[in-house]
Amino acid sequence: MGAAWIALGLSLKVALWATCIDLVLGVAVGWLLARVRFPGRDVLDALLTLPMVLPPTVLGYYLLVVIGRNGPLGRWLDAVFGINLIFTWQAAVIAAAVVAFPLVLKGARTAFETVDPQLEQAARVLGVRPFGVFLRVTLPLAWRGVLAGTLLAFARSLGEFGATLMVAGSIPGKTQTLSIAVYEAVQAGQDDTANLLVLVTSITCVTVLLLAGRLAPARRALP
């Protein structure tokens, strides 16, 4: 039973780190796609949305190619810093962040697109710097959509399985996240542990989804 709570704690740590990474990158890229027109914008949006539709095992394979010991990033990290990401909790964070990133991106982009550009222009006319316009006008008006996407990304990160298993493995106490622990418990015939983990995961995800639903921008009533 103690191993189950260790897996829960590790899953929460991985999900929090992955969500923080996605929040920073998702808000930046979401604003870029919503406010700046440039060649290849639709292609970039499609590529960044791919993790929503690709099988997790495919994403895991791509991550192995990139951050594995023989991959370009993995080889560089190993040669310069002596860091090997594979089969570490940091690899689980990367996997969860990649899988959940489109949820933050889509939520942020949609929220930014609902902000009236004239309000931003008015702030610039009053002498507010561009970054100040973002912090004082754009983000406060779009925060509900951004936060809703962030909560969904947290729930997705908490339940990530396929890509995490491929790059981080299932090392109890080190890389065995909640979803992997459920799989291992079922395989070992530990029904009580599996039931507890499933219950905790379900309650957490339902709570997050309810919060995300309340924070999402209100829809206009149909005529």
Rank of each mutant, 00 (worst) to 15 (best):
L73G: 03
G74M: 09
G74F: 09
R75H: 11
W76Q: 05
W76S: 03
L77R: 00
L77K: 04
D78Q: 07
D78L: 13
V80M: 05
V80H: 12
I83Y: 12
I83R: 06
N84L: 01
N84F: 01
N84G: 07
L85S: 04
I86D: 12
I86K: 09
I86Q: 09
I86P: 03
F87Y: 14
F87M: 14
F87D: 08
F87E: 05
T88G: 05
T88N: 09
T88M: 01
T88Q: 02
T88E: 07
W89V: 07
Q90E: 14
Q90L: 08
A92E: 10
A92I: 01
A92C: 00
A92L: 04
A92R: 00
V93L: 08
V93R: 05
A96C: 01
A97E: 06
V98M: 10
V98W: 14
V98F: 11
V99A: 08
V99W: 02
F101A: 05
F101P: 06
F101L: 04
P102L: 08
P102R: 12
L103P: 08
L103M: 15
L105V: 13
L105M: 13
K106Q: 10
K106E: 01
G107L: 04
A108H: 10
R109K: 15
R109Y: 03
R109D: 06
T110L: 12
T110H: 04
T110E: 10
T110M: 09
T110P: 01
A111Q: 06
F112H: 06
F112M: 10
F112G: 08
E113V: 02
E113K: 10
T114G: 13
T114F: 11
T114D: 12
V115L: 02
D116P: 05
D116F: 03
L119C: 04
E120S: 15
Q121D: 05
A122D: 12
A122F: 08
A123G: 07
R124Y: 00
R124P: 00
V125P: 08
L126Q: 13
L126F: 05
G127A: 11
G127R: 11
G127T: 06
G127Q: 07
G127P: 09
V128D: 10
V128H: 02
R129Q: 03
P130C: 01
P130N: 00
F131R: 03
G132V: 01
G132L: 00
G132M: 00
V133M: 02
F134S: 13
L135Q: 11
R136K: 12
V137D: 14
V137H: 11
L139F: 15
P140M: 05
P140Q: 15
P140E: 14
A142C: 03
A142K: 10
W143C: 12
W143V: 15
R144N: 14
G145V: 10
G145H: 08
G145L: 07
G145C: 02
V146W: 08
L147E: 12
A148M: 06
A148F: 06
G149V: 01
T150S: 14
L151I: 15
L152M: 15
L152T: 14
L152Q: 14
L152F: 15
A155D: 02
R156H: 07
S157M: 03
L158H: 05
L158A: 13
G159N: 13
E160C: 01
F161Y: 13
G162H: 04
T164W: 00
M166H: 00
